[in-house]
Design a protein around this nucleic acid. Structure first.
Ligand SMILES: [Mn+2]
Ligand SMILES: [Mn+2]
Ligand SMILES: [Zn+2]
Ligand SMILES: [Zn+2]
Lengths: 170, 170
DNA sequence: ACTGGATTGAAAGTGATTCTCATTTTCGTG
DNA sequence: CACGAAAATGAGAATCACTTTCAATCCAGT
């Protein structure tokens, strides 16, 4: 098994403070909706869809509207606090961003499990290829789809998608 | 510059014949719509959207409907003759498939140019990472987004997306 | 040619996301 | 604290890519 480095991240409170700062910097207003949505988002360590986030937020504050959740995740993205991912289930998913902690994804097509990994050798090769073809890369997406060990072993007919949250450095 | 290997592909006629064979194998019917759509698709060497394909086909045969283009492109995919790509402009794009000629993409975010490349070292690393995490990969997607040389040089304000069709092996 | 099942196209339906706009809220200023 | 302009909200309409529906049409095996 790869060495699972439990990287030390900012706390939820720190992220929330960063969000409030970002609002102030941009002269945007603090609202209870934004606060509630951001708090729920920062408390989540998975790849959450807007629908899921909406439902979670509703439990804390049933007054928030769908549109506001969409607007707030976009805002979080623009503030560099959220990353938008598009796996293959049709809906966008968002995850907390730790700068300097880029990672890619391995996705089980059967159970939906998502494993995160980071590999410097690949990142370097990507830069080389781009340079050779005259490009400067601003971002990239790499997703590996397949079957996890558990699913291949025949067990867990339709195991609920349990997501790993540790990034394996390889 | 990477060695641009102009890989010898099947001709349009060969692809068309393969399509007809695939129809027969599956006991599907040959129709003028399917033929026209397939012919236009095989004549195209870019990453074409359904909308674009629809417009091209309309010029050959104005009687084809939108739904049939969608259905036929799905059929081509199922026959292994087309690959579906999702870059970041919201619509699916399809390209001709040459088996044993997997490649990935480098996309200019300014002019839309798409450069294809294949890199065995990366492919091997992907397998290694997956194996280490217990996965068996069935497919993957790797897209590098950035700026091409021309766009960085300031020229070509909004150059029409001219696509390269040679896969650079690196 | 006959005929049953496959195919087609126009239009309606979907699902995710964005927009509209009337109403409410925030926050700097007096 | 009270104002008021500007920003934010939310319900629902709109959009966009894509799929489904279904009556009419076409294909292919006999
Ligand atoms: Mn992730
Ligand atoms: Mn390609
Ligand atoms: Zn699995
Ligand atoms: Zn460019």
């Amino acid at each position: 098994m790869g060495s699972s480095t439990a990287v030390s991240h900012r706390t939820q409170a720190q992220r929330f403070a960063a969000f409030k700062d970002a609002l102030r910097e941009r002269s945007l207003k603090s609202t209870s909706q934004r606060d509630d949505i951001a708090r729920v988002f920062f408390a989540n360590d998975q790849h959450i869809s807007v629908e899921e986030l909406y439902r979670e937020v509703k439990r804390v504050n049933p007054r928030v509207g769908y549109a506001t959740v969409y607007r707030t995740v976009r805002l979080l993205r623009e503030c560099g606090l959220a990353a938008e991912r598009h796996f293959h289930d049709g809906e966008a998913r968002f995850e907390n961003v730790e700068e300097e902690h880029h990672h890619d994804h391995l996705i089980c097509e059967r159970c939906g499990r998502i494993v995160e990994f980071a590999n410097d050798a690949i990142e370097r090769l990507q830069e080389q290829i781009a340079a050779r073809l005259g490009f400067v890369i601003t971002r990239h997406k790499m997703e590996l789809y397949g079957l996890c060990a558990e699913c291949r072993s025949g067990r867990t007919p339709h195991a609920a998608a349990k997501r790993e949250s540790r990034v394996s450095r390889t």
